[in-house]
Amino acid sequence: MSDVVQASNLAQINDEIWGAVLGMVLEPAGPEDAQPEGEELVTGQVQITGDWSGAVFIELSTSLARKATAAMFFTEPDDVSEEDLIDAVGELANMTGGNVKAQLEGPHALSLPSVTAGQRYRVSMPGTRVAGRVSQCCAGQLLTTTVIESGASPKAQDADAQVLASAADSP
């Protein structure tokens, strides 16, 4: 699994998806980069179950999600409906998660995507640890992709749960 969740591999998956589907270019971002305080965010996630179990999250600002949705629907960001935005972010998470799953050995199942949107929310999954994360920029806005793994040791869970929470939270 370690090769699949390397930041460089996740970044390459996103580069291909955002380039081919949206015609948008992603640039590397530093691990210290974070969403601005109070930013309205959208998180899309899919779960993978099988010999390896975990989940893939993508997190981006609502503003960037509007641009991505507009590119998908061939419209303007201001004309994007909330329903279409949720659909588009879910599909982006589905493509990222599906490409992660496709690189795993053995049979695995991919869940349907779920999407959370709003401000000051926290995404956490008990009994998991962060297995990989990459931050990228598009038009000056951040896209963070996180892979979490189920069944981690209690020590690893404690250490990484905080990383995930602080990255997904906008206090």
Partner: peptide, 26 residues
């Protein structure tokens, strides 16, 4: 589909599909 694997390809062909295209595609 976004989750193109050899197992899925085999199942699809056995069921009568002609091809699988991976997302993202051009």
């Amino acid at each position: 589909t976004s989750e193109h694997t050899p197992e899925m390809y085999d199942r699809a062909m056995a069921a009568g599909a002609q091809f699988l295209v991976s997302k993202p595609f051009t």
